[in-house]
Design a protein around this nucleic acid. Structure first.
Lengths: 225, 225
DNA sequence: AACCAGTGTTAACGTGTGTTAACCGATTTT
DNA sequence: AAAATCGGTTAACACACGTTAACACTGGTT
């Protein structure tokens, strides 16, 4: 198994070095940054699987870094390291999505638990680029959908719609949300267009009867798998 | 949205009460136990969605309680509350599966973050459940109802109504409660609409004569199975 | 420039779903 | 017994969605 790329941002050199070394003994490939801007740049270069951010950092604080990263990727897990002085409500605002946080001082074991919890979750969701949907294998970047030996090509729209459904699998995905995200606007024509694509996806997914895209009248769609 | 049943075991009365009350303001239905044995008994009675266990407790410690519960259910999320004195390796052994832990002292916000993280994960997995209603097999997420070899599709409303009836099977389910939960409001028209759906469900469930939806005039419906 | 293949939008028609209305019987209240 | 109430059932309706095909657009090829 290859090492998991991890981005660590911690401005206190002694602590950063200790954490980095400890994580490296546990199969992580750690990139250590000492301020927020560095972390943000490193994110685009290194494409880490998970990010650990100190909240108080020079140049750019951890929350701001996270906000910027969230614009580009809304699934990557982020763990914040907070000092005692951090107020609870600030933290609470970040308790959604792939986020977690850890209060200083913490033990390495505590950090490992958090990392593993979040990684397991995001692994299930987005295993890099090959997703399993029932018996299908969906390669999002390649826009192909494989069922056993035969491969179907997906168009750009089909792939994105399926990806979106997959990211929210087993829960209702709001019509309006899909339309705004993929079509840019929720109007009548775009809505009808989406319905056409749902039909197309259903056809392409019909080999595996355990999979289905169910409609929730007036709300949206739900991918069952 | 209904409250989430949560089992809390904490032997220190003051702390337990505070945590209980804080969680109750956030849509949890908290059962508080003050020792390990009580917690274990309460688990079977209350069927909680998530468990928060203090590690050091009278009669039975948290880890032992967890081991016992794991024999019955290996998916339910468990969060341990540990004091400083707890050694790291003990904790680490429990860092797998649906477990997490929290070091004392902790803030309510920290606990909420942990709970939500674990609940989201177990929700994704638990969505695939198939319910047995008499001879029928009811797949709620897929909105299908199977009787031997033939499959009926249910609509979203039918599925939800049936699910609700099922969750309260063999007991009277209040009309007003269903209406508020599924229709959003208890008024005349919604009430009539529900009656129509009851008729529809009865038709779809008529293959198995042991099942019936009986009316309790003025109160609600009861699913017998 | 003409052609072609692939993609996404629009149109047209068909089906499914949830609400409302209407009519009825059963039960309780007056 | 008459009246009021509640629920059972069916059908009519409006509208959301399903499906197919025609259409317009794009970029590449000859």
């Amino acid at each position: 198994m290859s090492k998991i790329p991890l981005l660590l941002a911690e401005d206190e050199p002694a602590l950063g070095q200790i954490v980095k070394e400890s994580l490296e003994t546990r199969d992580f490939d750690v990139t250590l940054c000492t301020d927020g801007l560095q972390a943000l740049q490193s994110y685009t270069n290194r494409n880490p699987a998970i990010i650990v951010l100190d909240v108080m950092m020079p140049k750019m604080d951890g929350f701001t870094v996270a906000k910027e990263i969230r614009k580009l990727d809304d699934t990557i897990p982020i763990i914040f390291l907070t000092a005692k002085s951090q107020t609870a409500d600030v933290v609470e605002g970040f308790s959604i999505g792939g986020n977690d946080y850890l209060k200083k001082p913490f033990s390495i074991e505590e950090l490992i638990v958090r990392i593993n919890n979040l990684l397991n979750r995001s692994l299930e969701q987005k295993n890099a680029d090959t997703l399993k949907i029932g018996e299908y294998i969906f390669e999002f970047p390649k826009q192909v959908l494989r069922f056993r030996e035969n491969t179907q090509n997906l168009t750009h729209r089909e792939a994105h719609l399926l990806f979106h459904l997959y990211k929210n699998k087993n829960q209702v995905l709001d019509r309006s949300l899909i339309l705004k995200k993929l079509w840019g606007d929720d109007d009548f024509f775009n809505g009808r267009s989406m319905d056409v694509f749902i039909t197309k996806l259903r056809k392409k997914l019909k080999e595996d009867p355990t999979i289905s895209i169910v409609n929730v009248r007036g709300f949206g769609y739900k991918l069952i798998c």
